[in-house]
Amino acid sequence: MILNHQKIAIVGGGPGGLTLARLLQMSGADVRVYERDYGKNARVQGATLDLHEDSGLEALRRAGLLEAFYDSYRPDAGRMRILDKHGDIHVDDHAAEKAFAEDRPEIDRAPLRKILLDSLQEDTVVWDSQFVSMERQDAGWLMYLKNGTQAYADVVIAGDGANSKIRPYLTALAPVYSGVTIVEGNIYNASTNAPRLWELVRGGKIFAFGDEQSLILSAKGEGSLSFYTGCKVSENWVQESGIDFTQKDGVFAWFKEAFGSWNDFWQELFTSNEIGLIPRPQYHFPLDQRWESLPNLTMLGDAAHRMPPYAGEGVNMAMQDAFELAECLTSGAFTDIHAAIADYEDRMLKRASQITQMSLEMTAMLHSADPIAQMVAMMSGE
């Protein structure tokens, strides 16, 4: 195997990075994951994840974790309701015998992370290790971490997300603004703090549309409710708005104005102080992005191909990256690591271009003048 005696560093302990670590360890590789969270019990934000047969589920299958996944997934979490801004229900997946996304089983982020962490050898993840910078040393890299420590690796793999600090070591290609910014919220103890919306979501998802805006709600098994507002605003809106997104009242004031024509019951999203909020301008990388492959550095997931979330492909792309990269590095098909990385990147970038295009089309459709009709047509196979 071309990884004999090579020290592999994966920066970022998301699903992609942890999946890669598991697959590499199954082949005997020496791998460490450097994660900025303080420990494995850190609170995991974000909506539930739907895994697709040929990507996310295939990664778990190769990792020997499919049974563990089905022990922890939420069978009805993918059932959706499509509403307009007034609260009228146009599609009710709960009333159907077969859910629209039944072939895309859903799992909360925290249980998926636990499954992957539990599959790794002890001390694989180095916690409280946020990447700051690195420099070439011998044939590899010396990494500098925020906690003041250093770590050497022969090969570094960036899994550090959409705002990757490692990506600039490979390419200067900048992301492109999609035209939509999300305000993400997480409401804890939602049955108490947002009872009407909690009842309406029924353990699944809500997609609501109006005025070329979107509002997506997702229930989680531990009782929280995540939501994403989607609005067409300028690229610098977060800074120019003057909103302090650490303070709920300012965000609530913006919501009441921006979604002023929506039914007042949506404002229940902001009635509790048990809430976390963060703005997320949505970017993507150029569809034709390319860079010169290096023999000791590559990327996976959002670091390589960030895109808006509206096609549900982010985690699936990252996990497919993981099993394709692991296969290149461990299959014996290549004479050296450089050739393996180059082949992986070529296939990954072609795939990412197609999926990014699809995600951008979905983003535009969901924020168009009449997305509900288009959603209904799509779900009916038209």
Rank of each mutant, 00 (worst) to 15 (best):
G161H: 13
I166M: 09
T171L: 04
T171M: 01
L173R: 09
L173S: 07
A174G: 05
P175N: 03
S178Q: 08
V180Q: 03
I182A: 04
V183P: 01
G185C: 05
G185E: 03
N189D: 15
S191T: 15
T192V: 15
A194R: 06
W198S: 12
K205C: 05
K205E: 06
A208L: 00
A219Y: 08
G223A: 14
S224F: 14
S226H: 11
S226G: 08
F227T: 02
F227I: 01
N236P: 03
W237C: 04
Q239G: 02
G242A: 01
D244T: 13
F245I: 10
F245R: 09
T246C: 14
T246L: 14
K248E: 08
K248A: 08
K248V: 09
D249C: 05
D249G: 06
V251C: 07
F252N: 12
A253C: 09
W254M: 00
F255G: 00
K256C: 06
E257I: 08
F259I: 00
G260Q: 01
N263T: 02
F265S: 03
Q267W: 11
E268H: 04
T271S: 14
N273M: 07
N273S: 09
E274P: 12
Y283D: 10
H284N: 14
H284W: 09
P286Y: 12
P286N: 09
L287A: 13
D288M: 13
Q289L: 12
S293A: 13
S293Y: 10
S293T: 12
L294Y: 13
P295A: 14
P295F: 15
L297S: 12
L300M: 15
G301N: 15
A303I: 10
